[in-house]
Design a binder for these strands. Structure first.
Lengths: 223, 223
DNA sequence: GGAATAATATGAGATATCTCATATTTTTGA
DNA sequence: TCAAAAATATGAGATATCTCATATTATTCC
């Protein structure tokens, strides 16, 4: 992790302002943090000292269960908040956040700004929207995971993450995200190939019949 | 549904104030609604005209999937908000909300107060907390549903809902909530009886070994 | 009060998904 | 550059969960 200092920090702030998110000056004690791929932005179980706002990059929220299973709860992208749960709640089990690409965040020290943040309607309004979408999204994922087999959820995931007709997510990550075993994921992917929805090419999968995948994914929709 | 009028309304407002939740006068156009058991407070797919704040009673959030399966997403209790998603988001698939006991809510007309509400730090702060807890709760349910079999989740649910050592939830509701088939729920309940964790008595189940259920439920915890 | 509806109950076979074992290939780090 | 670690791959048997069929109570409503 790198904390931008001096000229580097000044330049970054100049070109990437988040002043519009607050109605007061937040820059005085704000830091700019850069994390490398696979680095932990927040360690599971350890309360963070900052509220983060992601400017660039992608990250993943993980939680480890007592039976050793790991769930990838969600992906984090640019313009998302991190650590807002800890800002709001005194009691909270902190989840792990891991960068999956180089990630640059603004880091706002909680102890310094907590009171001001919780009094700022502009900030709270944006955060409320962010949280409402997050809650809705989790509710949708939850109910879908119980109502549909992997076949449907995977079809949706493939269509969402494929780039130019090619799907190439890491199986291990996808297992954690969709909450199924590695074995079963491979099994359903093989089925998709057998049905000619996908064509395997080394580690990539070419989408051959997106309409078939669409049909499978479509039944999840409405929410 | 009954809308309190005249003296009844005046008295109810006098004894149940929510003035402390806002920094402006919200009472002028606020209504008081009472719903009977099983009545729909919000119909699935229909945008509500009010932001509700539940004063008394309990309700359930439902969503219907395209394959006909119904998910009971969550329970709603006193001091929860309803319709806050529609207040915040212009595009949102509205879920159904059904009263499960007599339920009294304050109903704040959205078109009238939207702007003021979204500018009120006091209101937004409470709502943000409410949403953060909701999001966390959904995330926990989601990851648990994928990481643990029904046995563990049911044990937790039984302990949470039992009253004086007796569990008597309706099977149909529980199926929708835990996202399993009726058949399977009964199967696991029968197992619990066979293991002597529970003793069936007509439609009730007496908890005989809460420590065993506790052990099963415990592994979900940490979050 | 009786017919219709909802809730409970149980069996049996099907399927979705998991666990474990093991092999190969790729990536990483000293 | 090489050994260790991570990711991919596949088989086979186990288990969690589902579907469907059917019967028996409760509950609701005219």
């Amino acid at each position: 992790m790198e904390v931008y200092k001096g000229e580097k920090k000044r330049l970054y702030l100049e070109y990437n302002s988040i002043a519009h998110l607050f109605s007061f000056q937040v820059e005085a004690f704000m830091e700019v943090h850069e994390y490398q791929r696979d680095e932990w932005i927040i360690q599971e179980g350890m309360r963070p000292d900052f509220l983060f706002y992601v400017m660039e990059g992608k990250a993943k929220i993980y939680v480890t269960h007592q039976n050793g299973k790991v769930s990838l709860i969600n992906f984090i992208n640019a313009h998302d908040y991190i650590g807002e749960m800890e800002l709001l709640n005194d009691v909270y089990y902190t989840k792990g956040i891991q960068a999956s690409t180089k990630t640059v965040c603004f880091a706002i020290p909680i102890h310094r700004y907590r009171t001001q943040l919780l009094d700022d309607a502009k900030f709270l309004r944006e955060l409320t929207k962010f949280l409402s979408i997050k809650a809705t999204h989790m509710a949708a994922k939850y109910s879908q995971s119980l109502a549909f087999p992997l076949e449907n959820r995977l079809a949706d995931f493939i269509l969402q993450t494929a780039d130019e007709g090619i799907y190439k997510e890491k199986h291990v990550t996808v297992c954690d995200y969709l909450g199924v075993s590695y074995r079963h994921l491979l099994h359903v992917l093989t089925q998709f190939c057998a049905k000619n929805y996908l064509k395997k090419d080394g580690r990539n999968y070419h989408i051959k019949q997106s309409h078939s995948l669409n049909e499978l994914a479509e039944v999840l929709k409405n929410q």
